[in-house]
């Protein structure tokens, strides 16, 4: 059976086949959920935000012009929904480009993750969650969602240069953390 493209599904939904929207939900729910868990650090909030994001996407489907990919357009909705909730909860967040220039202090989180990690890979994958929101998001969007830097910059409403800086700094930080824990000996 031919796999429908995102655009074909959207056209079908707009024509009145509301049921076809389930195809889009099933296609993006897990990755969007991962993104939201990373933003909100809480699965219950993430589930609620996920539902809101899909409903917002459904209601705005007519405004999707196809200039960018549906995934980019949808992740922007997911990102904004997540950030709105974070702002509402008045958590400590890094908004705008300040986060790129700020130094990180992951001492407590790092010790916590290091103590429960059995090996370097487990440590690496866990410590990503502890990075500042924008740093971990850029990593997730790049490595899990396979978005290009240009698409990530659209989703996160950053310039292309700043997005690249953010990704590079995130990688540098992760590399430095591995070296700090002497994992490089195993790597070499």
């Amino acid at each position: 059976m031919k796999k429908l493209t995102d655009i074909e599904i959207i056209e079908s939904v707009i024509k009145g086949n509301v049921n076809d929207f389930t195809l889009l939900i099933d296609r993006y729910k897990h990755k969007a959920f991962s993104l939201l868990v990373n933003i909100l650090k809480n699965k219950m909030d993430a589930e609620e935000a996920l539902q809101d994001s899909f409903i917002k996407a459904y209601n705005s489907l007519n405004t999707f012009r196809g200039d960018s990919q549906f995934s980019t357009w949808f992740y922007k909705i997911v990102f904004n929904t997540g950030m709105t909730i974070v702002s509402a909860q008045k958590r400590k967040i890094e908004l705008g480009m300040n986060s790129v220039d700020e130094m990180f202090d992951l001492k407590d989180e790092d010790n916590e993750v290091y103590s429960v990690s059995e090996n370097k890979k487990m440590y690496l994958l866990k410590i990503v969650d502890k990075l500042p929101i924008k740093n971990s998001l850029v990593v997730i969007l790049f490595y899990i969602d396979n978005l290009s830097l240009k698409e990530i910059s659209e989703v996160m409403d950053l310039s292309l240069v700043n997005t690249k800086v953010l990704l590079h700094r995130s990688r540098n930080l992760l590399k430095d953390l591995l070296i700090q824990h002497n994992y490089q000996e195993e790597i070499l």
């Binding site: 699965k43 490595y143 990688r171």
Partner: peptide
């Protein structure tokens, strides 16, 4: 080497 390790292994980040 460590940088490369980070880059190659981040593709295995868990999806919730």
């Amino acid at each position: 080497k460590t940088h490369k390790y980070v880059h190659e292994n981040l593709y295995d980040l868990p999806i919730y």
